[in-house]
Simulated assay, not measured.
Amino acid sequence: MWFFKKFHYYYTNIDDSLLGKNIFHEIYIFIDYLFNFLIQGSSLTNYFIYSFYSLRNAEKRKYVTWRRQRWIYRQCNDPDYIHKLRDKNLINEIFGDYLMRDWLLPDEKTFEQFAQFVADNPVFIAKPALGTEGAGVKKFDVSAADEAALQAIYEELQGKQYLLERYIKQHPQIHCLHPQSVNTIRLTTIRNRDGVNILTAALRMGRADSVVDNYTTGGIVASVDLATGIVSSRGVDKMHHEFIVHPDTNEAIIGRQIPKWEEVKAFVKKLGEVVPQVRYTGWDIAITEDGPVLLEGNYQGNFHVQQHPDHTGKFKLFKETIKRI
């Protein structure tokens, strides 16, 4: 039942005049989706995000769909090592030199150790160590909290496998887009015999009061030109709304220069060498005035972020890079 509800939600809410017509057209689109699942390996989300209902088969074959992304993961990532990029606690241990911030697991610490952490880092983020897509992330500001309030927060976080991190102070050119969230650059890499290859880059931005910038939870994403670091597409959300300026802050999206771009690319290439058995990774990079810092790595980095903003399928790009593994 949930599947049909999800299909109906996309059909009636995607911002596209080709959808949302009547029940007979919805049935036709559902049948078309089933054919696309069989032929293209398209998930339901792929089908609507990439507008497969309006594309010719030759165009659809260019996209990394659900089935094709599974092939990419199998070709690139050793299943015995992917846990190193699944557990955020392990990520922080392995990539500690690239975090540039304090972090703590409250489940493993006493209240006194927690109190010292928040004294040093009064604004911090709490996120589930095994969470995905920004689910369960909370932001705390305890600069005015007394001991009783701190005790209550400590107890609230106990037993839930939360990871605490100092809140990142972003570069002003990125912060201004949406001050409530840390707005990251998602860069996707594959390591082959040529070294670490950066294949795509996208700017991710939060919306409204959200403290996360995740596309799947309503955020906005825009493509970034790899050569220049300039945002090269309009912003888009998963419901196909497009933005030239950020709707909450009126800050320009397209044409924006990502600061410290050459540093960012060099930084990500170093990250791609740390766990050589995991060749494909989507890196979430925050940019501060001192340079790039790692937020986290994703061994199953989302392809919607890479293909939706510029409406360009990238399966050939990934296949050609994988050939040289």
Rank of each mutant, 00 (worst) to 15 (best):
K139D: 13
A202G: 04
A145P: 01
C176P: 00
L226G: 06
A201N: 05
G195M: 07
A149K: 15
I153E: 04
A152W: 00
S181G: 14
I190T: 06
Y167R: 03
F140L: 08
I168D: 05
V236G: 03
E147F: 11
V212F: 03
T189I: 03
G134M: 06
D146F: 10
Q151G: 04
D213F: 09
V224L: 02
L164C: 10
K265T: 14
H246A: 12
G229D: 00
A149F: 07
R207D: 01
E165V: 02
L164R: 05
F267S: 03
Y162W: 12
K265C: 11
K138S: 01
Y215W: 14
S223F: 00
R186W: 07
F243R: 01
E156D: 15
E155K: 11
C176Q: 14
D194P: 01
R234H: 13
V196H: 07
P172A: 07
I153H: 03
V275A: 06
E242M: 13
T189M: 06
T184A: 07
K169N: 12
E262F: 11
K160E: 11
M205I: 15
L187H: 03
F140W: 09
T216A: 15
K265V: 06
E262K: 12
R256I: 04
H178K: 08
G206F: 09
S223Q: 08
R186Q: 12
R256K: 15
A252I: 08
R186T: 11
V275H: 13
V182S: 11
S181M: 05
G272S: 14
Q170A: 07
V231C: 01
P247V: 13
Q170F: 09
E155A: 08
L150V: 12
A148H: 14
S143K: 13
E273G: 00
V236K: 02
K238P: 02
G255I: 09
I254D: 00
R186A: 09
F267W: 12
H178W: 14
A144F: 15
A135N: 12
A135F: 13
S210F: 08
T216Q: 14
K138D: 00
V137Q: 01
G218V: 03
D141Y: 12
I253E: 02
R166N: 04
I174H: 02
T200I: 01
K260G: 10
A149M: 14
T200A: 06
A144C: 15
R207T: 15
T228H: 01
A202H: 04
C176E: 13
Q151M: 12
N183L: 10
S143A: 15
K160S: 04
A201Y: 04
R166V: 02
A149V: 11
P276A: 10
K138G: 00
Y167T: 02
D213T: 10
L187F: 06
E251Q: 14
A266L: 08
Y162C: 04
N183W: 08
G159L: 11
H171D: 13
Q161I: 00
K238L: 14
T217A: 10
V224E: 01
A227V: 06
G136M: 09
V231A: 01
A145V: 02
D146T: 04
L157G: 07
H246N: 13
F140Q: 04
V182I: 14
V196I: 01
H178V: 10
G229Q: 00
A149T: 12
A227K: 09
G219T: 05
